[in-house]
């Protein structure tokens, strides 16, 4: 599968309070959360992004709280993929678990600029910077994680396998 969109670029250590401030956590409704996505780091994000756009960030994206509201808000906002140099641990799990596509790629994280048009090929984990005419290769996922991604999230994966202890 391929997705294409405009890059919204952020720095290192974008924390979960920036992605979705705690003042909105009295709900878990995805649409409502999406309406406040990135509000404290980029108040124009909600107005300016289009479905399928891509978030590109630096190191440790999603650090801070365990709130699944963060990847839920991003996914419900229509973002097709988050590319970062690295992801914070719980955000990484949560994104995989809810089926928000993420990729880790140092080069893409450094070189992609705000507003560039980016295409991502999830089969090959290749990232194409169409504005700069460059190609970057993201880290492939471990096999077990790939299975969850393929099932489009942990819940589907569990339903399908009803927990066979098949992790090597």
């Amino acid at each position: 599968m391929k997705v294409k969109g405009k890059a919204f670029k952020y720095s290192d250590n974008v924390d979960t309070d920036l992605i979705i401030p705690a003042r909105y956590l009295n709900t878990s409704d995805p649409e409502e959360l999406a309406g406040h996505c990135m509000e404290d780091i980029d108040p124009t994000f909600v107005k300016e992004h289009n479905p399928k756009d891509i978030i590109v960030a630096g190191k440790n994206f999603g650090c801070g709280s365990s709130r699944e509201h963060a990847p839920i808000a991003i996914k419900a906002a229509g973002i097709s993929c988050v590319i970062a140099w690295t992801f914070a641990r719980i955000f990484y799990r949560n994104a995989i678990n809810i089926g928000l596509p993420i990729l880790e790629c140092e080069e893409a994280s450094k070189k992609i600029e705000y507003g560039s048009v980016i295409e991502v090929d999830f089969e090959t984990n290749d990232i194409f910077d169409l504005t700069k005419n460059q190609k970057y290769s993201a880290q492939p996922f471990p096999e077990f994680i790939q299975k969850i991604i393929k099932a489009e999230g942990l819940i589907n994966y569990i339903r399908e396998s009803m927990v066979k202890t098949e992790i090597k």
């Binding site: 949560n94 999230g153 942990l154």
Partner: peptide, 18 residues
């Protein structure tokens, strides 16, 4: 360790976590 809500859901059903 901290995990997310979906992990908790899976844990409540299976008793396990990866």
């Amino acid at each position: 360790t901290g995990i997310g809500s979906t992990d908790l859901a899976a844990g409540m059903a299976t008793g396990k976590c990866w």
